[in-house]
Amino acid sequence: MDASSGIPIERTARPYLIGIVLALILTAIPFWLVYDGALPRETLLMVIATFAVVQIFVHLRFFLHIDFSTTPRENLIALAFAAVLICIMVGGSLWIMFDLYHRMMV
């Protein structure tokens, strides 16, 4: 974010190049492992989830340029709040719906 104009400035292509390389690697590995099918299902799911979370951070850092120094504090707080709420809402919903499924076959 540029202080004088309020409009973000991206001087070099470097973060995007790092980002795309990392993202491609973090995509190719889970795709390959699933295609290969050698690992057991639970392990594969864990791997997919972990790589997805890491890739999200890669996108946030290298494409959206979110960091603790230049990003305005309110944007970071909004992101953190959204993340917490999403965990509560999705986690709570899955808990409720799977609990209902076990009890009511719904």
Binding site: L85, I88, I96, D99, L100, H102
Partner: peptide, 18 residues
């Protein structure tokens, strides 16, 4: 306020824990 919503449907089959 984001942590209480199930109280609108206590009676609709959830377990005691939920």
């Amino acid at each position: 306020s984001f942590t209480v919503w199930l109280h609108h449907f206590f009676t609709m089959g959830s377990s005691a824990r939920v």
